[in-house]
Structures are given as structure tokens and as C-alpha cells.
Computed example of a mutant assay.
Amino acid sequence: MNDRSEGACERVERLEDIPEPVPTGEFVVVDVIISSTSIVRLLEGGAEYVKPFGDPEAALQFKEQTEDALLVGEDGGGAIEGFDLSPLPSIIADADVAGRPVGIRTSNGTRAMDRIGHTDGLLVGSTVNAAAVAEELSERGTNSLIVAAGRQGEPTPEDSVGAELIQARYRANSLDEDALRERILECSTAEWLRSMGYDHEIDALLEFDSTETVPTLKDGVFIDA
């Protein structure tokens, strides 16, 4: 993929660094562990659509008002009362999501989406779909901002890696991918997953560019572009 001079592709290290007022242009939200990867897997699993929520109460209302809806989410890494599933991709893989509308709320990723406030065009990026997201940005050819969501106001290595990877793919720059993988392996969130026996979740994140699924917001819900 060639560098596109028509649009600059920049990034920020945490959702709190999204400029105010929110500028025009394209946005990619990167929350590698875990909402970005979860949305990718939900769409791959056949979900009708995935609707992001910054507020758990709004998500619960959506479930009450939407036939056959499923809620996926966490708050500070823990379960949310009234929600159906954890957002861990391996748990999603075992769930019946095909054809169902899904709401998702996470501590950082969906809050970043809510902060941007767009109802159309927003992309979700992770390590697993970095090249596909970069290609979509390249085709749009306008200024774009990649938002590494971070955690509780602090940058996180895994989100920074995802954002760096997408930007490098867009600019056709080379990276030391082994070093990027090592940063993910050593991050505190990966340690948390390992402590619960979810080593396989980390392994999947290290498979860069392993899917072409690009969640794209249309009328307030994510579909596969």
C-alpha cells in the first residue's frame, strides 16, 4: 500500500487526548484488550450489528427495547449486572451471536467512541486487522486520527502498539514486529489475562493482520465494511 498524500494519518495515546472540539476527518478507535478485538470477533461470528455504549444503563435499556439483543461488556475488568457476556473473544466464540443485535460497553474503548460522538464512518482497529483498517483509511484519502484508548487516562502498551501498527501500514513504513509483540506480551493487561488462564487470548492478538474485518459505524452501529 502506498502512502497517501491526500490525508495525514496521526495518532494519540489515550482517549483523553482527542481534541476538543472534535475535528472533522476519519477516526479509528484502538482498544486491543479488549473492545476493538471483541467487536471484530462479534461481526465475524455473524452478529447483525454491534452498538457501542459509554453508559451501562443505556445499554440495558437497549436490551429491553431490542428483540433478541445480547449485551457484552465489562467495568474495570469485572462483570456488569444485567449483561450477558464478558467481552473476551474466546467467550464470544462460544456464544450464540449469529443474527443477533449486540450492545457492547467497555471501560475505555466504547468511552472513546462516545467521546468522538460520530454516528457514521468511525472505524475500529486492533492488531488483528491493522492492515485492513489502514487500507480503508487509504481508500478514504482524508485526514485521520488513530485513537489508542488507553486505560483510566494512562497510555497502555497494547493500544499504542495497535495504533502504531495501523499508522505504519498506512504510511507503508516498516516496523520491528517482534519488538511490538514483546511489548504486548509484557503489558500488565496481558499479565492479567494470563493470571486467569487466558494465554490463548494474547496469542491471538500477536497474529497481526490475521483478519480483513473492519468494523465501521453506520447509523450508530458497527457493521463489517
Rank of each mutant, 00 (worst) to 15 (best):
R115C: 01
V30R: 08
G99T: 14
V97M: 13
I92W: 01
V30Y: 12
V221H: 14
G76I: 10
R14N: 11
S38Y: 08
T127Y: 04
T37C: 01
A130K: 00
V161L: 08
M1I: 13
P21M: 13
R183F: 02
A58S: 14
E154A: 15
L165V: 12
A69N: 07
G78A: 14
L137K: 05
G73F: 02
V40H: 04
E201I: 05
A163D: 02
T106A: 09
I33F: 12
A204V: 06
V30Q: 10
L217P: 02
S38F: 12
L180E: 03
T216N: 06
A225S: 15
G103H: 09
A95Q: 08
D3N: 14
E10S: 15
T37S: 14
S160L: 14
P52R: 08
V30A: 12
A168W: 06
T156R: 02
D209Y: 02
S36I: 05
Q167W: 04
S195I: 10
G220M: 13
R140I: 11
F62Y: 15
Y49Q: 08
G125C: 08
C9H: 05
E164R: 09
N108T: 10
L165E: 05
E186M: 12
Q65T: 12
S126L: 06
G77D: 03
D209V: 06
V133P: 03
I223L: 15
L60N: 07
S188K: 13
L165M: 14
G153I: 06
G25T: 06
C9Q: 08
F222C: 05
S188M: 09
R140E: 10
L85W: 03
N129H: 03
V97E: 03
L185Q: 13
A148M: 05
V161W: 00
T189V: 11
L88I: 08
E10M: 14
